[in-house]
């Protein structure tokens, strides 16, 4: 080979380690998917192929209920966090670099760094006070909490997109008689759109599988899919959970593939 540069892939044992890592990463997921097709009631003993768990899960009133709640919360949280993230990204990329810039980034990405359990307890305290004061018990708390920790997931792809955008384009739009709003509508927004959709999908997926904050914030009877599954597994082990997880996995893979395709495309 003409290429004589150093490459990790030519170190001895590289492929062995790589295969090992992939097995550790994906074997459990593979097991989960396989056992969702188990004919028996066990999630450890294979008793022949069957599709029984999928209709069973679907016909379970409770599963439908928590799935709808999860999707509602995830959709609302994804929309809210992406809107906030878009504004934050515009604010942080569309002005001169100032001293506080790094601090602002840290503030926006705070949910990525603060242990989730801390946020969960903090939200519990605040929301408890509000619940007492207003008497409101609805889904709003969960939506707000999810929106908050989803912001950095929506912010990062949008910011990456905006940073790659030539600011002269906005100047040019203004030069060509576009008002600031028209400039945003006809130039900035279309160009940032792939980043915004990517952010929307990441936020959706992040909200969908949250357990810790949801457990702390939810009122009675507000189980989401993950907290419901957790409760199920604690009570009795059923392959129904495998079926639900597999469906969630499929949804996530679809969304993340979309994310990948959108962020890969360059303009």
């Amino acid at each position: 080979m003409a290429d004589t540069r150093f490459s990790v892939s030519r170190l001895p044992g590289f492929s062995t380690i790589a295969v090992g890592v992939f097995i550790i990463l994906y074997l459990p997921i593979l097991m989960l998917v396989i056992y969702s097709f188990n004919g028996g009631n066990s999630i450890a003993v294979w008793e022949g192929f069957s599709l029984q768990w999928y209709p069973k899960a679907w016909n379970n009133e409770q599963v439908r209920d928590v799935t709808m709640r999860s999707l509602t919360i995830a959709s609302a949280a994804a929309l809210i966090s992406t809107t906030v993230a878009l504004m934050a990204a515009l604010g942080t990329t569309r002005r001169k670099q100032t001293k506080g810039q790094t601090f602002v980034y840290l503030m926006i990405n705070q949910p990525l760094m603060v242990p989730e359990i801390v946020t969960a307890v903090a939200l519990l305290i605040v929301f408890a006070a509000i619940k007492v004061a207003t008497g409101y018990q609805g889904l709003g708390y969960l939506i707000l909490a999810h929106s908050a920790f989803c912001i950095p997931f929506a912010y990062l792809p949008i910011r990456a997109r905006l940073e790659g955008m030539d600011l002269t384009l906005e100047t040019a739009a203004g030069d060509l008689y576009a008002t600031p709003w028209q400039t945003f509508r006809h130039v900035t927004l279309p160009i940032v759109m792939p980043g915004a959709i990517a952010g929307l999908m990441l936020a959706f997926v992040t909200s969908l599988d949250d357990v810790i904050i949801t457990l702390f914030v939810k009122s009675a009877g507000q189980d989401t899919l993950p907290t419901y599954m957790l409760a199920q597994i604690r009570r009795s082990v059923s392959a129904e959970v495998n079926a639900i997880s597999t469906l969630l996995l499929v949804l996530t893979v679809i969304l993340l593939t979309g994310f990948f395709l959108l962020t890969r495309k360059r303009t």
């Binding site: 030539d166 002269t168 384009l169 100047t171 040019a172 739009a173 203004g174 030069d175 060509l176 008689y177 576009a178 008002t179 006809h186 130039v187 279309p190 160009i191 303009t267």
Partner: peptide
């Protein structure tokens, strides 16, 4: 700038990447 009957040709051209040539020309 949007209130001035003055247009600019930029050093970097600053063509809108999401629009076609015709849409770029018609933008103003």
């Amino acid at each position: 700038p949007n209130k001035r009957p003055v247009n600019t040709v930029f050093q970097s051209y600053a063509l809108f990447p999401h629009l076609t040539v015709a849409q770029n020309i018609g933008f103003g």
